[in-house]
């Protein structure tokens, strides 16, 4: 290793550590603000208190939004995992033209402007007479979660040895059973990764949801932005800290079962 290599390596480590600090900064700010006694966000907090955690009990609107968002994220992720598994098998195993194009199309919603998709869905649902806000939101959120699932599953199925499925079939398993008993357990990390990213993307979606909500069905990001405009006190920070804790639990579970690296890389 030359002198220049050593300098580059040292610089890379400085940038990487700076990156970690930069990424974690908003989390520290939020957690610190949630324990502040002050009703405005001042850092560092003048005094520490748990009052914003206590106040969460009275913010029933926020809780409704949390429940709706968890519900949408869970249902849309499960549907996407099913649709995504089938489509990924077809693209990986099939022998037909246009498989590249299909893969690009299925992943493309990730890169489309959310507001535009939201507007387009709003106009489309109006056209076909769909008025139910929950159903509209669910249909929209599947468009958000499906590409996350497809991206990860396509990559991991390309490396999967499908002769294992054939072996299971020779041993008398039906095709669907072989998929469930052999493919899915073997690709568990990919399912965990894609499920996690899809779930988080749905939970966090603002631009598509904003066009599909009504007064009674407001998702968490919409409620939070509205709340920030009306009364920006740290109860939101308290609630976000709770969600961060939930994510930590999921990460610890993932790290224990499949390992963090496999989980994040699929």
């Amino acid at each position: 290793m030359t002198q220049t290599d050593r300098i580059f390596r040292a610089l890379s480590w400085i940038v990487a550590l700076g990156c970690v600090a930069f990424l974690m900064l908003p989390i520290f700010i939020t957690v610190a603000a949630s324990f502040s006694a002050s009703p405005v966000y001042t850092l560092p907090p003048p005094e520490w208190s748990l009052r914003w955690y206590v106040s969460l009990e009275r913010r029933s609107g926020l809780w409704d939004a949390v429940v709706l968002s968890l519900n949408l994220a869970f249902v849309s992720t499960v549907i996407s995992l099913v649709l995504g598994t089938l489509a990924s098998i077809a693209v990986t195993r099939g022998n037909f033209r246009g498989r590249e194009a299909i893969a690009t199309f299925a992943v493309s919603p990730l890169m489309m402007p959310g507001l535009v998709v939201g507007v387009a869905l709003l106009q489309f649902f109006r056209e076909i007479g769909l008025r139910d806000a929950y159903v509209s939101l669910l249909l929209g959120h599947i468009v958000i979660t499906l590409p996350f699932v497809m991206r990860t599953l396509l990559a991991s199925m390309a490396a999967f040895d499908f002769s294992m499925i054939d072996a299971a079939r020779t041993l008398g398993m039906s095709y669907p059973k072989a998929i469930l008993r052999v493919l899915v357990p073997n690709l568990a990390p990919a399912y965990l990764t894609s499920g996690l990213f899809a779930f988080l993307a749905s939970m966090d979606n603002y631009p598509i949801s904003i066009f599909l909500t009504d007064a009674r069905n407001k998702t968490l990001p919409i409620k939070m932005l509205q709340y920030l405009e009306e009364q920006p006190d740290p109860s939101l920070a308290a609630m976000s800290s709770g969600l961060i804790l939930l994510a930590v639990v999921v990460l610890v579970f993932g790290a224990r079962t499949v390992g963090l690296n496999r989980m994040i890389q699929g």
Partner: peptide, 27 residues
């Protein structure tokens, strides 16, 4: 170290973009 980097990549995603952007506006 790998755990630190991987957590730094994923954990911030659990903080919604609304709260994250608001945290930056405070900063």
């Amino acid at each position: 170290w790998l755990t630190v980097f991987l957590v730094a990549m994923v954990l911030p995603m659990s903080l919604g973009v609304v709260v994250k952007a608001f945290a930056w506006s405070i900063l």
